[in-house]
Write a protein that binds this DNA or RNA. Structure first.
Length: 493
RNA sequence: GCGGUUGUGGUCUAGACUGGUUAGGACCCAAGCUUCCCAAGCUUGUAGCCCGGGUUCAAAUCCCGGCAACCGCACCA
């Protein structure tokens, strides 16, 4: 796809992102963010935190390590369930999931089977390679987690976390006390997760190291129903584009029309949707909510909707975030394995809180901004929300003589403290506009001969390519009104 | 991981089949000149054959191995 090449090339040339370790040939599944990409990433994180921590005064951010000891991920089920038994055909070299082969033969679920069971079944059923009929080698465990050894002897082992969520669950007890036992309680964290993907592909979409932004909300479904009901009441008429598991098509419906979903779920679903429309400023046509079918869902998820984005560069609808009602599976597991009490007292006795998880693949969300914002028809330009754009404004002298560079430098200094802004003088004025169009600089300010006369300058809008003239005194206020969305550019024309 | 295709300055590419001067071009970038608003022009400059080995007097070019990318399959608790 030509469009995709253009975007990827721009990302490399201008400093957004590129393959990691590139001077050594690169390594699949790892990306580096350059100076512009990192700004975009940091801005996204800030807006995400402001938005989701703002949903309730008892939602907070925590930070946890990338490495967990073996026991944590044993308890979470990742050691057992995050791995597959792979068998390999000795003749043609094709690999298969052992449990799938057995399932096909016996017609019942074989996911529980370990290496030994699979090997037994394969010889018992005399299974052979579906591709060529060859015999299978000994089954091997393939775990998607990266194992690391701890300490000088290497006797202790741990894993790079495959998701940030576990760090939140194992801190539930401590934070519940620290926050004086208030529920619902939300713990958010933004951090790296690691999965040893068999074939990482499609750029930022599937990586071996990636960023997650997650918010885990702990609550008791019957006890806190009213709290969420009240919150949901405010947004219940909002429309979302959604496809339920048993629907054929995506439909636009009001949140309150969705059946079988409790307010705690609908409230957060509505808010996630709002985040995509209002903060990331994506078109309603580009995003949808999709309910996963029974066999797509993880076993511990009671309700699971994904938010999907229609990517030009990735060939269609792909998951960018999810809302998972995990029941009390996680805390129950950790209570059992750690012997720590993770229940809370209620009138009806001790109860283990339930969790609803808001989970965002940060890199995917960054890519969705670039994918959706990149235009490459008559000119190349990037349409980013001004709050997220790495550069909000750029300042130029119209020509490099008669004191205009010096004057523009003063303007730059005055803007620098309030905005993300650059100053440049090289090339022609048109070239500078073009350069800034490409990286999504929302507003370009040009100092010309009138500036010397009357202290006004022009502000050009990236989308309209039109200019307004404002005084240097007012320019900071005008820009901040534009960036905050208090006024539109057309209001000044 | 399997099969197919591919890999040349920052970007896009010519050259490879048929081995042979300083690997050519366009754009970008930087410095300077010029310039009163949308990639103008001129001068100068930085920088490249994915990596390793082999064949040969001689390898970007042929052979082998590796790495990476794209597509398909498989995989994605």
């Amino acid at each position: 796809m030509a469009e995709q090449d253009g975007l990827e090339s721009m990302c490399r040339r201008r400093g957004f992102l590129w393959q990691s370790s590139e001077i050594y040939g690169g390594e699949a599944g790892f990306y580096d963010y350059g100076h512009l990409g990192t700004k975009l990433l940091e801005n996204w994180k800030k807006e995400w935190k402001d938005f989701f921590l703002g949903l309730d005064e008892n939602y907070h951010l925590i930070n946890t390590p990338n490495i967990y000891p073996h026991r944590v991920l044993d308890a979470s089920g990742h050691v057992d369930h995050f791995s597959d038994v792979m068998v390999r055909c000795e003749r043609c070299g094709a690999s298969f999931r052992g449990d799938h082969l057995v399932e096909e033969e016996i017609g019942e679920n074989a996911e529980w089977m370990g290496k030994e069971e699979i090997e037994e079944k394969i010889s018992e059923l005399e299974l052979s390679c579906p591709e060529c009929g060859g015999t299978f080698s000994e089954p091997k465990d393939f775990n998607m987690m990266f194992k690391v050894s701890l300490g000088p002897t290497g006797e202790k082992s741990g894993f790079l976390r495959p998701e940030t969520a576990q760090g939140t669950y194992i801190n539930f007890r401590r934070e519940f006390r620290a926050l004086r036992k208030q529920m619902p309680m939300g713990l958010a964290t933004i951090g790296s997760a690691f999965r040893n993907e068999i074939s990482p592909r499609q750029g930022l979409y599937r990586m071996r190291e990636f960023l997650q932004a997650e918010l885990q909300i702990f609550f008791l479904p019957d006890k806190h129903e009213e709290v969420f009901k009240e919150k949901f009441e405010v947004i219940k008429d909002k429309k979302i584009r959604i496809k339920r598991a048993d629907w054929k098509d995506t439909k636009e419906v009001e949140l309150c029309e969705l059946e079988g979903l409790a307010p705690f779920y609908l409230f957060h679903l509505g808010k996630i949707y709002e985040f995509y429309l209002d903060v990331m400023e994506l078109d309603p046509e580009e995003i949808r909510v999709r309910e996963l079918s029974e066999d797509e869902k993880a076993f511990y998820n009671k309700i699971h909707f994904d938010i999907e984005m229609d990517f030009d560069t990735l060939g269609g609808w792909k998951e960018v975030s999810g809302l998972h009602y995990r029941g009390n599976y996680d805390l129950k597991q950790h209570q059992k394995e750690s012997n720590a009490t993770l229940s809370v007292p209620t009138e009806e006795g001790k109860k283990i809180p339930h969790v609803i998880e808001l989970s965002f693949g940060v890199d995917r969300n960054i890519w969705s901004l670039l994918d959706s914002g990149y235009h490459s028809n008559d000119r190349d330009w990037l349409d980013l929300p001004s709050k997220l754009a790495p550069r909000q404004a750029a300042v130029f002298p119209l020509v490099r003589k008669d004191g205009l560079p010096e004057k523009s430098r003063e303007v730059f200094k005055k803007l620098e403290k309030d905005f993300r802004v650059t100053w440049e003088k090289s090339g022609s004025i048109g070239k500078r506009y073009a350069r800034n169009d490409e990286v999504g600089t929302r507003y370009c300010l040009t100092v010309d001969y009138d500036t010397i006369e009357d202290n006004t300058l022009t502000i050009r809008d990236i989308e309209r390519k039109e200019q307004i003239r404002v005084s240097i005194e007012e320019m900071n206020d005008v820009l901040s009104d534009l960036i905050e969305g208090k006024k539109g550019f057309e209001d000044y024309l």
